[in-house]
């Protein structure tokens, strides 16, 4: 499980083994993710550093709550690049983040498909 995007053990501890809550949190992420990612991509395209920092900061918190360490770190890296104005690194940092966030999404969608409530 070392290359898993989500640390399920950590996540289950966080939700006190409440799988219904876990499903609910995944649903929230799945609903919110496309719009937030599009806004972030748009901000990167426009080079709006403040907006990039804000959106990646929110992603960092959300992904941290989901025990998605790799994607959380990518969001942190993107946020940091925006805060210190490293415009040249933004595209690469965003690409890393998008890849890791999508891996997280794929993994939680798989979980949701298997654990869909009756």
């Amino acid at each position: 499980m070392s290359n898993s995007a989500i640390n399920f053990q950590e996540l289950l501890d966080r939700v006190d083994n409440d799988r219904q809550l876990l499903y609910e949190l995944f649903s929230i992420f799945k609903d919110e993710f496309p719009g937030n990612l599009a806004r972030l991509r748009d901000a990167v395209t426009r080079g709006e550093l403040k907006e990039i920092a804000k959106l990646s900061h929110t992603f960092k918190g959300t992904l941290g709550n989901l025990a998605a360490a790799q994607a959380m770190n990518s969001a942190a890296h993107l946020e940091q690049a925006a805060r210190i104005g490293q415009a040249a690194q933004l595209s690469a940092a965003f690409a890393d983040f998008e890849r890791d966030a999508n891996s997280t999404l794929t993994e939680l969608e798989t979980y949701m498909a298997e654990a869909r409530p009756a």
Partner: peptide, 17 residues
């Protein structure tokens, strides 16, 4: 908290407590 996921996680945790 403006993040709905974080808010829901906290709500449920604190209601349980």
């Amino acid at each position: 908290d403006d993040d709905p996921l974080s808010r829901r996680l906290l709500e449920k945790t604190l209601l349980r407590a």
